[in-house]
């Protein structure tokens, strides 16, 4: 239990670090972005909204740095992430609330499937070292070097177009109202297939490589030799002895790699105009929508930390050593 508590403490530290980075970064922005927005909206903003933006950007010159920092923290705790420039007059929290379910659905599901598929394939490839399976390695190396978004571009060029089953953009048929009927769910699945496969193909190869290397390292360890010597069936040695132990570094690797993977998959959303956080990030960069950028960064960080916590729980279940007291 102390292991988990230690991890939670570490995640709280990370949240604090991310919030603090978010507090200091906007101070580099040249000029007065809030004034620019007020001019653009011609006085349609309430004084309350203006005030919250000034707190967000730390442009409140009358206050000391410390009190700016605390009013910023207070504002975050109330869930106030400021006003979005591009989706004016929606608050950033609402904009992100619209995008988050799509990203969690698409990226979450494909990342988990990719991890399981890749780990299983890597276990087999690593076990059958020196056979035809080794020829998979150059292919996976090449595929894992391709940026996710470029693979998406190729997929759109090859597989979509007039009369194709796969739609090239969006998350559901235009004109449908999001609700839980079969027509909408079917449309969502149809739109999610191509982006999903793109992410799957790029992410699977990385897991194959790392699991293969762990399997190769583990399979010449003494306890595997002993398992062979006991006359255990090949399958059992591979799964219960070699793979079980090779899995541990891959699970902790999964937690650590999440931050990188999420970054890559957000780009797939841009290519497919999938209405998640990635597309919003793209729009925010183009429109210099700083509050939205910061909000997305915070939410993505929080989601990755939450996923990390889940990976920790999985690790706890897989490795009995972490459950030992002391």
């Amino acid at each position: 239990m102390s292991y988990l508590l230690k991890r939670i403490g570490f995640y709280l530290l990370t949240v604090w670090a991310a919030v603090t980075i978010n507090f200091f970064v906007p101070r580099m922005i040249p000029g007065d972005p809030v004034q620019a927005l007020i001019t653009k909206q011609r006085g349609q903003m309430t004084s309350e909204a203006v005030r919250s933006l000034y707190v967000l950007f730390g442009l409140d010159k009358d206050e000391s740095l410390a009190s700016q920092y605390f009013s910023y923290l207070g504002q975050l705790l109330r869930g106030d992430l400021g006003m979005s420039f591009t989706f004016f007059p929606s608050p950033v929290a609402d904009v992100i609330g619209d995008g988050l379910p799509w990203t969690v659905g698409l990226v979450g599901i494909t990342t988990v499937i990719g991890f399981f598929l890749g780990t299983a394939a890597g276990a087999v490839v690593g076990w059958r070292r020196g056979t035809w399976a080794d020829s998979l390695i150059p292919v996976t190396t090449f595929v894992s070097s391709i940026p996710y978004f470029w693979l998406g571009l190729v997929a759109i060029a090859l597989l979509t177009g007039p009369g194709s089953f796969f739609p090239a953009s969006g998350a559901y048929e235009i004109g449908l109202v999001p609700n839980w009927d079969w027509q909408f769910i079917g449309s969502t699945v149809q739109h999610g297939l191509l982006p999903g496969f793109t992410i799957l193909i790029s992410s699977v190869s990385g897991w194959i490589l790392s699991m293969r290397n762990m399997m190769v390292t583990v399979s010449s360890d003494d306890y595997v030799t002993v398992a062979h010597a006991k006359g255990l069936p090949e399958r059992r040695v591979m799964l219960a002895y070699a793979a079980r132990n090779a899995l541990l570094p891959n699970v902790s690797g999964f937690a650590l790699a999440l931050g990188f993977i999420v970054g890559g998959t957000l780009l797939v959303e841009i290519v497919f105009s999938y209405p998640g956080l990635g597309l919003q990030l793209f729009q925010a960069v183009g429109a210099k929508d700083y509050p939205l950028l910061q909000g997305i960064f915070l939410i993505i960080t929080l989601s990755v930390l939450l996923a990390n916590l889940l990976a920790d729980v999985a690790y706890l279940a897989l490795d009995p050593r972490t459950r030992r007291e002391g």
Partner: peptide
Amino acid sequence: SALSNVFLVIPALPLIVIITSSLP
């Protein structure tokens, strides 16, 4: 060690995006 772990779990790409788009 804690410092490097913090930088490791914060998603790198969104962090790089918010910093570079705020630079003068």
